[in-house]
Nucleic acid binder design. Structure first.
Lengths: 108, 108
DNA sequence: CATATAAGTTAACTTTAGTTTACTTTTATA
DNA sequence: TATAAAAGTAAACTAAAGTTAACTTATATG
């Protein structure tokens, strides 16, 4: 279980980044920006997150640069810690074929 | 650039899996199920995808088992090929502070 | 403008994800 | 029920992600 982030005592200097428009189509860059924005908005430093999750600073920086050569597990740990998540989008989906009861093989 | 999947000539045996309810909260397992469902729905085999994307079959199987010890890049390649994507969800987000013009530091 | 703290970089090293090949198991259907 | 194709597994090897530690650069604020 991961501990929830806690606002540190006082007076730390953390630059806040603007949140990207997450209604736009997904891209690794946009995800990276959302992560940085969320982290800085919560007044957490890279080292704060690094220590809380036991992930090295260079790896966190890769994540926040949108580098996709990172382990999915590490990305998900960071996202969960910051209160970010995914929803899955299908280009052409009839949500749940069990609700309609028909067409079970043609939803895509 | 990745080629779009093309339905093969005829007669291949591919079991179709049911699509998970992607309106539920994200989990790696759910993502894995969505990927398998999409692939089988498109009548593609693991080897079809493997060859199209130059990703080994064992890696694809890890992805479809929800194993998070995979490279983000590989997961994204597979998703794009199958017409799946993410949208980013924040637990407490005021979408784009530039639209409101205020409160640029308190959106999280 | 001096200082402290955060961000970012680099290089040597360690760990592990990914590949290849071959094999076993499962599943559809002729 | 035999068979062919797909799915899944395993092991040895290769490639690359991740770590550590030390350093440089950027940025607030006293």
């Amino acid at each position: 279980m991961i501990n929830k982030p806690v606002k540190k005592a006082l007076g730390r200097v953390v630059k806040s980044t603007e949140m990207p428009d997450i209604t736009k189509n997904f891209s690794p860059k946009q995800l990276a920006e959302a992560i940085t924005a969320k982290r800085t908005g919560m007044k957490l430093t890279l080292v704060d997150v690094s220590e809380a999750l036991s992930i090295s600073k260079p790896t966190l920086i890769k994540i926040e640069k949108g580098d996709t050569s990172v382990k999915l597990a590490n990305l998900l740990k960071v996202m969960e810690y910051l209160g970010l998540s995914f929803s899955i989008v299908s280009d052409d989906l009839i949500p749940n074929s069990t609700t309609t009861g028909v067409n079970d093989d043609e939803w895509y």
